[in-house]
Simulated assay, not measured.
Amino acid sequence: MFSRLMAMVLATALMMINIPQYTAASVSVSARSAILMEQDSGRILYEKEANKVRRIASITKIMTAILAIESGKMDDMVKVSDRAVRAEGSSIYLKAGEKIKLEDLVYGLMLRSGNDSAVAIAEHVGGSLEGFGFLMNKKAEEIGMKNTHFANPHGLDDHEDHYSTAYDMALLTRYAMNNEIYQKIAGTKVHRAPNPNESWDRVWKNKNRLLTELYEYSTGGKTGYTKRAKRTLVTTASKENLNLIAVTLNGPDDWNDHISMYETAFKTYDIVEVLPEGIIEDIDEEYYKGKVYLKHPYNYPVSKEEKDKFKIDIKLQKPETEWEDSRAIPGVIGQATVYLDGEPIKKLPLYYKHDPIKEDKSLLDYFKGLFTSIAGVKTNG
């Protein structure tokens, strides 16, 4: 019962925070570092040296893609520079001086891992490779990627200070997957782009074999490889209501690593509604009864054994004397802390439902009165 868990306390700063809860899953992977994260809650379902700093190769391009998308310049025509054409490694075979839509560059970046595309994007969005590097690291800081530094837009081994972790790359992917344009591009199997230099269009097939042929629940991701980083892979998968993110760094058998993590999680976890949206009915305090509500439901992935291990602690502000006028009551009046097996996993703001303000006159009557006053009907003369 919520009433048993209620505590009346003085107001404190209330923040929506998420504390991912880790639980071991029975799975084995070949990768040196790995993580499996539930996308919506951020819960870590499996990890192996997930915070170990490593080289990341072309999964770097997830950051390049989301910055391009968020720039608002996807319809821009980008002039390809000599520097972009000279980029080593995988390529979409751009030619110096040609103009190509930024949107198509992002498709070439994500599907074919074009390093020439990465440089062209960086120069157009950031003004230069150095300027784009600043944007990459600024965004990484905003997302909370604490063990990451970007030195280029493609992930080539041309800088010693270009690195991340499996956990940080999962955070980045979780952020990117909130963007519908990114979702669409990362989940595209084949893209066709105009080719100004030839009579045929460019046709790019996604290198992510999990998406194109190996795993029916795959929804997107990004591949990577360099001699120093070895094989790196980020993928996403969804089944029923469970949305997952998998990351492996230096994984010689990465396709099977990801499938193994996904299959284990889909068999082990279900999404449950911990708190529904709307009025919290079990609050018996007279002042707040029928008035405290959640704006959104709170769902969380749990195993069968964990479903009965949730506890809710509700804390509400002590009513103030000046609240006799209900309009003085603040919108946020408390918080609900969700515990799983004794550990806090989420703090949710609680809102006060204000009664609609009753007016003596309708809005139409008000404007009628205003008009007649202006017209002089109610004045002497």
Rank of each mutant, 00 (worst) to 15 (best):
G331Q: 13
G155P: 13
E123Y: 03
L340A: 12
G155H: 11
D355H: 05
K309A: 09
T219P: 06
K304A: 08
I44A: 01
G97W: 02
D76T: 11
N51M: 11
E213H: 15
K99N: 06
P349Y: 01
P20Q: 05
K289T: 04
R112N: 15
G127C: 07
I44E: 07
N256Y: 13
S33R: 08
W204M: 13
E123G: 01
S326G: 03
P301M: 10
H191K: 12
T248P: 10
E98Y: 03
G131W: 02
I19F: 07
V338Q: 07
H124V: 10
Y293L: 02
K346S: 00
T219I: 08
G369R: 12
F150H: 07
Q39I: 01
R4M: 05
A151L: 11
M16K: 04
F371P: 06
I283N: 00
Y298I: 06
V203W: 06
D104S: 14
R202V: 11
H354D: 13
M261E: 06
D76F: 04
I181M: 10
I333M: 00
D355E: 14
A140E: 08
M63K: 01
G251V: 09
M74L: 15
E263F: 04
D168M: 01
N51Q: 13
K295V: 00
R55F: 10
I280K: 00
L210Q: 14
E263I: 11
K267H: 14
